[in-house]
Structures are given as structure tokens and as C-alpha cells.
Nucleic acid binder design. Structure first.
Lengths: 129, 129
DNA sequence: TCAATTGGTTTCCTAAAAGAAACTAGGTTT
DNA sequence: AAACCTAGTTTCTTTTAGGAAACCAATTGA
């Protein structure tokens, strides 16, 4: 009945957060969203700062949550392709919304801190500690 | 122009994430969303597991981002009331969307792991390495 | 025989987040 | 005078996240 119920239901927000939180998950997801299929090494090259360990672990978590699919080709040297699952694509709108909110928020903060010089004189003391 | 561009724009998703990530921010936000005003001690009572230190720091971050407003009453013993800012309310739809996605996701995982016994027989080998 | 290849795993280490608990301010009540 | 109230701050410790680098497996090519 209740639309917002802090205690109980906010664990379910955490569920959503856990999917996308992690230093590398958003960028991995965006790459997979715009690329259909990517090999492990292609992801590594696309995100040069990431370590193998992190790339593996983040992909495994996403796979565990049925967001990405891992396709292993039985050949040597190994070939593994990652792609969004059908279900995983359902996450796209949320990610896009979050990103737009983030974009707007950056503007908002800029206005707050830059433009609004009047306010700064009155409340400026509080900021510099 | 591009709608999804992994590298650059995903920092802006991180901006959004940083607002709501933190073990306690979602629950704090939901409490403030449904309560208009809450004193520090009321929040403490509403979220008994949280420590003063965490409650303070999370509220400060939210205040810094213009999501919550902090009103100090000059009296002893102190009284401080927290509330969502006008701007902060703009975050509500996103939080609600995220929570619904989380709810659906829990169902999805349950179906995946519980219901789908057929698939388990075919792909069971892959899991135990 | 030996290096190269890909997609990892493992171990060790550092940094950051979070928690527990004691301390503080300063006016009010006992 | 001593204890109590609220809304914190501070210090110390534990937990978690993340990174660097070495190792591995199986086959191909030089």
C-alpha cells in the first residue's frame, strides 16, 4: 500500500545499487551496451586502467546477476565473449536516467557554487573549514 | 550527439551514484522523503544501527550536494532539523525507479535460481570448476 | 625447445570506508 | 555541585575495496 517505506523496502534499492556500484561496473556496462559483444581483451583495451583481476570480478558479478552473458569458445588461445543478456538490457533506461540526473546535478552544483555570488557573501564563512 | 558514450559520460553516472551510495544514504533519504522534517535524534532512532559519526557524515554530504537542508535552532540542548531541499525532491523519481528495479530484480533472480530446474541439469557442469 | 598467445587466478599490499567508544559544549534540572 | 540533555567531534580499530605483479594452462609458431 505505502508508496515510500524507508526501512523494509530500501534494501531493494540496495539490490539495484549493488549491480552498478563498483568502480568499474558502470563503464563496463556502457561499453557492453554500445557494443553487442566484446572479448575480455577488448574490454581491457577499452578500459586501460582496469586490472585483469577487477575486470574478471566485475564481469563475474554481472554474470551472476544475469546482466551479462559469458560465452566461452573452446579453443587455444582462449576466446571469451561478453555481451548484455536480454534481461540485462532492461537496466539501460535506469542507467541512462541516472546519467542524465548526474549531468543535471553537475550543472546545478556549478550554479550553486559559481553563479550565486550574493549568497556566498552571507554564507561564505561556513565553507572554508 | 551520441546517446551512449562509455568513456566520457559515465563519470556523470558516477556523480549520481556518489549521491546515493554509502551504506546509509538511501535509507536516510527515504526517511526524509516521507517525513518532511526530522531531528538528528529522530533519524538516529529511526535507523538504530547507524552511528552518530556515520549519520553526521552522510547528512553532511547530502547537504553539500543540496539534497538536504540543515536547520540549526540556537538553543540548548541543541536542536537540528533535517529536511529535503526543493531541489532534493527531484531525486525522488530516480530513487523510486531504482527501488522498483531492485524489487523486480529480486523476483527475477528467484525465478532464475529456483524455478528453472531444467536448465540446471544442462549447465550444471560449468559452475563447479 | 622455447617464446607467444589469451583469459584468467593467486598472493600480497595499500587505501578507503565504516564502526565503537570516549569526549565536548553549555545551558537545565536535581 | 553534579548529572543530564542534544548534536555532534575525535581517536582508534576493524573491515572492505582495490591494485600490482607473478603465476598458470594448452596449443601454435619460430
Amino acid at each position: 500500500m505505502a508508496n515510500l517505506t524507508a526501512g523494509e523496502n530500501c534494501g531493494e534499492l540496495q539490490v539495484a545499487l549493488d549491480i552498478i556500484v563498483g568502480k568499474w561496473k558502470p563503464i563496463i556496462l556502457f561499453h557492453l551496451m554500445e557494443n553487442e559483444k566484446l572479448r575480455f581483451s577488448e574490454l581491457q583495451r577499452a578500459i586501460p586502467e582496469i586490472t585483469k583481476k577487477m575486470l574478471t570480478s566485475q564481469l563475474r558479478e554481472l554474470e551472476y546477476n544475469d546482466i551479462v552473458h559469458r560465452e566461452v569458445y573452446q579453443q587455444v588461445p582462449p576466446k571469451v565473449e561478453y555481451s548484455m543478456t536480454e534481461y540485462g538490457h532492461g537496466l539501460t533506461p535506469l542507467l541512462v536516467s541516472m546519467r542524465s540526473w548526474g549531468t543535471e546535478h553537475l550543472k546545478h552544483l556549478k550554479e550553486l557554487r559559481g553563479e550565486d555570488k550574493d549568497n556566498e557573501e552571507q554564507e561564505g564563512k561556513a565553507g572554508s573549514n
